[in-house]
Structures are given as structure tokens and as C-alpha cells.
């Protein structure tokens, strides 16, 4: 169990690095899909089986398909480095590493590695459904309106002007 987590974690970090370092967007997208699937495995290990499956269906299977579609539709090729992107590299990378160390320091201080997990609990679809339709009805309805607005917006934006 634990060893599977560390394997998934290591591969997902490598794949995430590949998302950022690849210059061809299709490869970035494929690496990101790999990261999403590995995260789903980690969710499974953490006992969130419903969310794990939703992650694969919605994130890897629907959202990323949109990305891949758009990349192919616009025929996005390799990106060419420019003057300012070099500036971003020399300034950005140290800043980002500083940020990483800072947050890691906070995390390790706040949660020493002895923190024990809570007892196993039911995270099946039924339990999630109960919570969703009892305690979170309003957010649920609001998100459904949001989705509707997003659909309309996407159609209006992507429509060709006549």
C-alpha cells in the first residue's frame, strides 16, 4: 500500500515536471493526463474511491479531452523561447524554489510525520450523496447554474461571427 503511494508520487512528480518542461503542448497534455490518473490512484489509496473514479471520468476523460481537442484544432506547435521568457526563468525559478521550501517548512512543522489517520470511514457514493443533498444542497444547485452559464458562454464565445 505505502510503496504504491511512493511509486505513484514519484512518477506523478516526474510527469508534472514533463508538463512544464515539454515545449510541445500535446506532450504536456499527455503528461498531465498521466498525473491525473496517478492522483486518482492516490485518492484510492487514501480511501476516496468515488472521487477517484470521478477524477478519471471528469478530469482525465472529459476536461483533458477538451484540451487535447483545442491543441489539435489550433495546431499548437513547439513554442519558441523569447527574451522575456528567459527573464522569467532567471527570476521565476529561484522565487518558485523559495516558495516551495517555505511551504514545505510550514507543512513539516505543522504536521509532524507521526500524525495518525482517522479510523476508516464510509466514503462510498451513498455517503457522498447523503452529504451532498443534505448539507451542500445550495452549493450543488449554484454549481449546476454555473455549469449552465459556462455552456452558454462557451457556445457564444466559440461561435463564428457571421
Amino acid at each position: 500500500m505505502e510503496i504504491l503511494f511512493y511509486i505513484c508520487a514519484a512518477v506523478s512528480v516526474l510527469a508534472a515536471l514533463n508538463v512544464v518542461l515539454q515545449r510541445t503542448p500535446v506532450y504536456s497534455a499527455l503528461s498531465l493526463i498521466l498525473v491525473l490518473c496517478l492522483l486518482a490512484v492516490i485518492y484510492l489509496l487514501l480511501g476516496a474511491e468515488f472521487i477517484a473514479v470521478i477524477q478519471v471520468i471528469v478530469y482525465a476523460g472529459a476536461i483533458m479531452v477538451l484540451f487535447v481537442f483545442v491543441i489539435m484544432l489550433l495546431n499548437a506547435g513547439r513554442e519558441v523561447p523569447s527574451e522575456r521568457s528567459r527573464l522569467a526563468r532567471w527570476l521565476g525559478v529561484p522565487l518558485v524554489i523559495a516558495f516551495l521550501l517555505e511551504v514545505l517548512w510550514a507543512v513539516w512543522n505543522q504536521f509532524p510525520s507521526g500524525t495518525a489517520p482517522a479510523a476508516d470511514f464510509d466514503a462510498g457514493p451513498a455517503a457522498i450523496g447523503h452529504l451532498l443533498f443534505r448539507n451542500y444542497v445550495l452549493p450543488f444547485e449554484v454549481t449546476s447554474v454555473l455549469i449552465l452559464v459556462a455552456i452558454l458562454g462557451a457556445v457564444v464565445l466559440a461561435k463564428k461571427e457571421e
Binding site: E2, F5, L104, V107, W108, S113, G114
Partner: peptide, 20 residues
């Protein structure tokens, strides 16, 4: 069991890679 801090570390690393 996987320690909480290890999962959070992975989360932070992924976040920082995304930010970079």
C-alpha cells in the same frame, strides 16, 4: 499508513511545479 506530511509534500511539490 502513509503519513499526512508525505501526502501534503507531494501536494506542495505538484503545486509549485504548476506555479513554475
Amino acid at each position: 499508513m502513509i503519513p499526512l506530511s508525505h501526502v501534503l509534500t507531494l501536494s506542495v511539490i505538484l503545486f509549485v511545479i504548476g506555479a513554475a
